[in-house]
């Protein structure tokens, strides 16, 4: 259809008005295409800038940059390794996904199957409003409300009960009682990505043809059997896509995490130890680093790694969500 229209729009046609039209058409089309090129150039520019500015650090430390756990910006004994921040980024995001997915599924199930019609819109809007709240607000709320709560009520209970489990108990025991920890960061991230995952799930659950569900109900299936046997298999790809979208968001989240993770450049032994993420290290150290210093180059280099990780996750998410829509 659009092909047909565009052929008409630029068709060579004799006559004064038509000529004026096609000049205008050519100009407008190039304006639009130029804007599209700006978008391509921006992303290309981001990748190139991060890589070039990070190159001195990559060259100086080689492959060890990714695996080294030393991060020491003190002058004279500068040493930079990305492993701790990569570890913190990945672990906090994966924990966040583990917390958020069951709750998001519950909300989507509630909104599509359980809730009466009059309740669906207000509850759906409320969940979407969670997505609109700026990350700095999550950070402040996390620091002044969630962190004290984790410190007082969660950390000790977990440490005393789950800490007794052989072999993996140490994950829940920490000597740090500040409350700012990987766990707090993951909890804040989980609340932040909850609306994205829940909204995607709700939207794709609604796309399941009613006939499929009705035939399952007709066979005597319970509501849960319809959802687990028909709705989830039908929407599996998009559901995973939605989860990946949430993961992509969590990986790059900066401010909320910076407030609650404790920003410690040590390898965490437990989920209640303070840690750091790539984005928080950049936010904490970049404004104070010297232009052209090795530290600044190392910060660009971890920025490049963050871009790489989130690019892979976001591209996968998009592929999963798109391929579903098309067929």
């Amino acid at each position: 259809m659009s092909d047909f229209v565009s052929r008409i729009g630029t068709a060579p046609y004799v006559g004064p008005r038509r000529t004026a039209g096609s000049v205008g058409d050519a100009i407008f089309e190039w304006l639009c295409r130029g804007a599209g090129l700006i978008v391509l150039l921006t992303l290309g520019g981001i990748i190139l800038t991060l890589f070039i500015a990070g190159l001195p650090a990559f060259q100086h430390f080689g492959l060890g940059f990714i695996f080294s756990t030393n991060w020491d910006p003190v002058e004279g004994r500068e040493e930079f390794g990305a492993f701790i921040s990569i570890f913190g980024t990945v672990v906090s995001s994966i924990l966040a996904i583990l917390f958020a997915v069951p709750v998001a599924f519950g909300i989507a199930y509630f909104l599509t199957e359980l809730a009466p019609m009059w309740l669906r819109r207000p509850v759906g809007t409320a969940v979407e409003l969670l997505a609109a709240i700026p990350s700095i607000i999550y950070g402040m709320w996390g620091l002044f409300v969630l962190v004290p709560f984790v410190q007082m009520n969660i950390q000790l209970t977990f440490g005393e009960t789950l800490g007794a489990i052989p072999f993996i108990g140490f994950i829940f025991e920490s000597n740090s009682f500040a409350g700012t920890s990987l766990f707090s960061a993951a909890l804040v991230l989980a609340i932040m990505i909850l609306p994205f995952i829940a909204a995607t799930m709700r939207d794709v659950f609604e796309q399941v043809p009613p006939v499929y569900k009705e035939s399952a109900y007709g066979l005597g299936a319970t509501r849960w059997e319809v959802v687990s046997g028909v709705v989830i298999p039908y929407t599996r790809k998009s559901v995973v896509g939605g989860i990946m979208l949430g993961l992509g968001r969590a990986l790059g989240e900066t401010m909320a995490v910076t407030f609650v993770i404790g920003n410690a450049n040590r390898m965490p032994q437990s989920i209640f130890d303070p840690s750091t993420t790539i984005a928080s290290v950049i936010a904490m150290e970049f404004p104070e680093s010297l232009a052209g210093s090795l530290q600044q180059s190392a910060l660009f280099a971890i920025g490049f790694l963050l871009f790489f990780i989130s690019f892979v996750v976001l591209a996968t998410s998009r592929w999963l969500l798109r391929s579903r829509l098309k067929g």
């Binding site: 992303l43 981001i46 990986l251 989240e253 963050l306 989130s310 998009r318």
Partner: peptide, 24 residues
Amino acid sequence: AVRFVSDILLSAPSILIGLFIYQL
């Protein structure tokens, strides 16, 4: 390609855009 890149920019970590503009 433009659609793909625009979707990536929509969810890319915003702090990296800060790094880009810093350099630029």
